[in-house]
Write a protein that binds this DNA or RNA. Structure first.
Lengths: 346, 346
DNA sequence: ACGATGAATGAACACGTTTTCAATTCCAAC
DNA sequence: GTTGGAATTGAAAACGTGTTCATTCATCGT
């Protein structure tokens, strides 16, 4: 027997283990199901033999009868984004501990999920689906309603949620951004900022729209002018160019509220290396997310933190609760934000 | 019928479609298998009805008989790392186009894969497994040999590959780092560097060991002193502290070769913001990977690029070739590296 | 000693698909 | 009109597991 021929050895099955242990195949199944009734010594012997034979229950066969795939689908527009990669990492770790594997899919850049992707994903029967893309398309997603209930991450206004009626069919994690934004604006105002610009994210992103709305509301509420709206798309390069544009052809500003940290980096670099302006001396900067890069000395960004561990715990809770009660009404978890002060404001 | 009751509607099955279309269930199966023999008009009618009923073949049931799960497992130690997240993103996109979904697992921080994780993953029967963790444990991985053949990404010396005999049971992508390193050292020498430090990555990482080995070899080959070895772990913070240590308690250096780009950022920030030294004036810096952040203006890092599109194409090719010929000998793809010159050397 | 309660056990079925395989239909060529 | 071969079809048998359900076995209170 050469090494290579090992590969042809058929995978061990429950039947084989049963025969080898002189028990019925049902006993093997029970041995791997902790709360099934089986004599302890028998279970031990079966597990021992299973280990020798390198046997593991086949998830596909199991899921066929159990109606549980132990898969959690994630639809992500851009894995490279530091914030999203962080979230995927933490979520995968947490889910792995609960016995779930993550099934990763890439959405389109415009944050939409096309029918093809969804039906494809549906074939795998994920127990739950987390939509990182915020573009809600109720009729498309309705295809999922046979088993899993999708989870949406939304911002601030649970009721409006795109104004779509079928919103009541999703579970959701609501991120309240108001606290963090209020603290940020207070800080900016305290350091004498008068003219604030909002450097936008992807226009289709609900997080972006809500950030813009709340920042405007808070600024005006504190007697300041509404923000100068600078379009962006969450990327460094666009933020860089937009900032240069703001100061070269526009009137400039004495503070920039970026829609995410990466955009804030672009703004900082544009100010320092292209416009020869100082941060925070000439222009103050606030970001959003608090990704690991934000404490890097070149930026040391003051930013609105969305606490990742809290966020992950909330998501896992949503998944487990839904699995326990498939027919329950829409589940909701709420999260808050707070400002992390570093050195880009004062 | 309320909205909620829709959720209880059982998922459409091939049987239902068959009944609805007045054909046998086999015909439905054939309708979804393009190269099966079925009268075109019949296929159209079935697909039409399937669409109306929102039917998709169940992957679990299919994989049970086909012995193809259409899943590609990825074992990743740290999804947050910019380089890895980039690779996961590109790989997922490419595989999705070929009809595969990615199954993501987190390895332990020390780059090892424990038995629990592997047996767990095995249950899902991935068609292929890509090991991003470089710590080779042949006996552990042998548990996979019943169906999928794991792919290892290794560096430079295919033969040595950890010196483990069972290396011949893996497919592998070999990344040749010599070209890039030679170009980098030539550039450093050209700009007058005399004393080069190597800022290491995780000690368990084979990529790191090989980088250290080759850099030493190339330096000595060009008549320079072997590098000062500074231990690290691929992270920004460790690189920052290590660099401070190198210049505070050590003798310093006039050039730093970092084991990855993120480490280079840490070194740059330590030099500029803690040690008040200039880059590239006082110290020249070269990194490894060429991640997107490397062209950010605050760093603008000169670095050894591993071309991502090439790399992904090679990996996908490995997977498809192996699936076509499960019993073929070990498959090997080779890749090269080259220097990307920016402004941290001269 | 005796019925009663509960745990332990295995045969048969179900889950939703693909794959033989034999039977049928179709069509062109003689 | 016949005949051959190819295209088309459906019944039955897998694939590997969890779950009923009726049966056997041990245990315990009276």
């Amino acid at each position: 027997m050469s090494e290579r021929s090992d590969r042809k050895t058929a995978r061990a099955t429950a039947d084989l283990v049963a025969r080898e242990a002189n028990v019925s195949r049902v006993a093997v199944s029970r041995a791997f199901n902790p709360n099934a009734s089986l004599k302890p010594e028998k279970r031990d012997r079966i597990l021992q033999i299973a280990r020798e034979l390198n046997y593991t229950p086949d998830m596909a066969a199991r899921s066929l009868v159990t109606r549980r795939s132990h898969l959690v689908g994630m639809i992500v527009p851009d894995v490279c984004s530091p914030w999203e990669s962080q979230e995927i990492d933490a979520l995968t770790t947490a889910l792995q501990a609960e016995g779930f594997a993550t099934l990763l899919f890439k959405a389109k850049a415009d944050l939409s999920m096309d029918q093809t992707l969804l039906t494809y994903m549906r074939g795998f029967n994920p127990d739950s689906v987390i939509a990182f893309t915020e573009n809600v398309e109720p009729d498309v997603l309705s295809g999922f309603l046979d088993r899993a209930v999708p989870i949406y991450i939304i911002y601030d206004d649970a009721e409006e949620f795109g104004g779509k009626p079928s919103a009541s069919l999703y579970d959701r994690l609501v991120v309240g951004q108001k606290e963090g934004i209020e603290q940020a604006v207070a800080l900016l105002q305290g350091y004498g900022a008068r003219r604030v610009a909002y450097l936008g994210g992807k226009p289709q992103s609900l997080a972006n729209t809500e950030r813009e709305r709340i920042i405007t509301q808070v600024l005006v509420g504190r007697g300041m002018a509404p923000p100068i709206l600078v379009p962006g798309d969450y990327t460094y390069d666009t933020a860089y160019r937009a900032t240069v544009g703001l100061f070269r052809v526009g009137d400039g500003a004495d503070a920039i509220f970026a829609s995410n940290d990466v955009g804030a980096f672009g703004a900082i670099d544009a100010l320092r290396h292209e416009l020869s302006l100082s941060v925070p001396g000439d222009v103050k900067i606030v970001g959003f997310d608090d990704i690991p890069q934000s404490h890097w000395k070149s930026y040391n960004l003051t930013t609105v933190r969305i606490d990742l561990p809290d966020r992950v715990r909330a998501l896992v809770r949503l998944i487990l609760r839904r699995l326990k009660a498939p027919d329950a009404g829409p589940l909701i978890e709420t999260l808050s934000t707070r400002l992390v002060v570093r050195s880009t404001v004062g």
